[in-house]
């Protein structure tokens, strides 16, 4: 039983790290531009493809990672420059829909490229040495990539924290997220801050993309869709626009998902004699293993609940008008 719990906790932390890495990028951009960038998930997908290409060509992981991060950041900056900058200040919905269009272009562009390269839509992801396999501590076994995900998440988010508190650019980013026109009055260059947010978000999404691809073992052009929805939920739970909130929301979401999966069918897993037959029957009836396949629906219900009860999230403040 204790092994089961430890494994689930590690799973929750690993999933939480990935969601947090994704959510932070969404939240940074949202904080400054009030843009929900749904194409953020496709950055993750692009990263996975670049990594698959690099690893498939026999490049070492140490060489593939910079290539992957660089390529993804480039795509992220390009998307901001070409698609989002011309419509800055447009109504919320217009920018949101534009990000859907950008996502369609990235997905189908990838599809087209793989076709031209003579590859199938679904390709196996070549697990790099050092990320595959399992780690075993006594009776507890955990996929190595889960541990790496957790550690990578903590390290990168720690670096981000240093950046936004210690450097002028990071400070400018936080100021712009809180009050864009007041930040402009400090002499902050909005374009530079926005580009920085996109670059950092892309780099974090790239890392998440690699880890996600290793976990899944295969990739296709549409793998970014569900993660970006989850990242959005994470960002909303934490309080949209706040970096700390996005991180917190990511881990809460990871925990929630693993919890739903873990309690589903709990009545069948509990060792004999640990609970009375009535309790077991109750659990089997109300927490059937089929519940696990409703995980995404439960998570979205949770999102809608948060939006209704506390739209500003756990750490967020109520939005105040940004006009000066």
């Amino acid at each position: 039983m204790i092994e089961y719990v430890v494994q689930q906790v590690v799973n929750a932390l690993a999933a939480g790290s990935l969601y947090a890495l994704m959510a932070v990028g969404l939240a940074m951009v949202f904080g400054i531009l009030r843009l929900i960038n749904f194409a953020h998930g496709d950055l993750m997908m692009i990263a996975a493809y670049v990594a698959a290409f690099g690893l498939g060509a026999g490049l070492a992981l140490e060489l593939t990672i910079p290539l992957m991060v660089g390529g993804t950041v480039l795509v992220g900056l390009l998307m901001e420059r070409v698609a989002y900058r011309p419509i800055r200040g447009a109504p919320d919905v217009a920018t949101l829909l534009s990000s859907f269009a950008v996502g369609q272009i990235l997905q189908n562009g990838t599809l087209l490229t793989t076709r031209l390269a003579g590859q199938p839509t679904l390709i196996a992801f070549p697990a790099p040495a050092g990320l595959g396999g399992v780690a075993a501590v006594g009776p507890i076994t955990v996929p190595l990539v889960n541990i790496v995900s957790f550690v990578a998440g903590i390290v990168l988010l720690g670096m981000l924290t240093v950046f936004v508190t210690r450097t002028n650019l990071g400070l400018s980013m936080r100021a712009a997220a809180e009050d864009l026109s007041a930040a402009q009055l400090m002499g902050i260059k909005v374009n530079r801050v926005v580009a920085t947010a996109f670059a950092i978000g892309s780099a974090l999404a790239a890392t998440a993309g690699l880890l996600f691809a290793v976990q899944a073992g295969q990739i296709n052009p549409y793998i970014g869709f569900t993660p970006v929805l989850k990242a959005f939920i994470a960002a909303v739970i934490g309080g949209f626009g706040s970096i700390a909130g996005a991180v917190l929301g990511g881990y809460i979401l990871g925990a929630l998902e693993v919890f739903v999966t873990a309690v589903a069918g709990i009545g069948d897993i509990l060792p004999p004699g640990s609970v009375s037959p009535e309790v077991r029957a109750f659990l089997q009836q109300w927490l059937p293993s089929a519940l696990a396949s409703y995980r995404d629906a439960i998570v979205f219900l949770f999102l809608i609940l948060v939006l209704l009860v506390r739209p500003q999230g756990i750490l967020g403040q109520r939005d105040r008008g940004d006009s000066l």
Partner: peptide, 26 residues
């Protein structure tokens, strides 16, 4: 959901779409 506004209603209704899909699959 109509109490929400702006992009939040968009995302909440997107959540509805996902929920419908999950239910149809299950």
């Amino acid at each position: 959901l109509m109490r929400l506004s702006g992009h939040f209603v968009a995302v909440a209704t997107l959540g509805f779409l996902v929920i419908v899909r999950v239910i149809l699959f299950n």
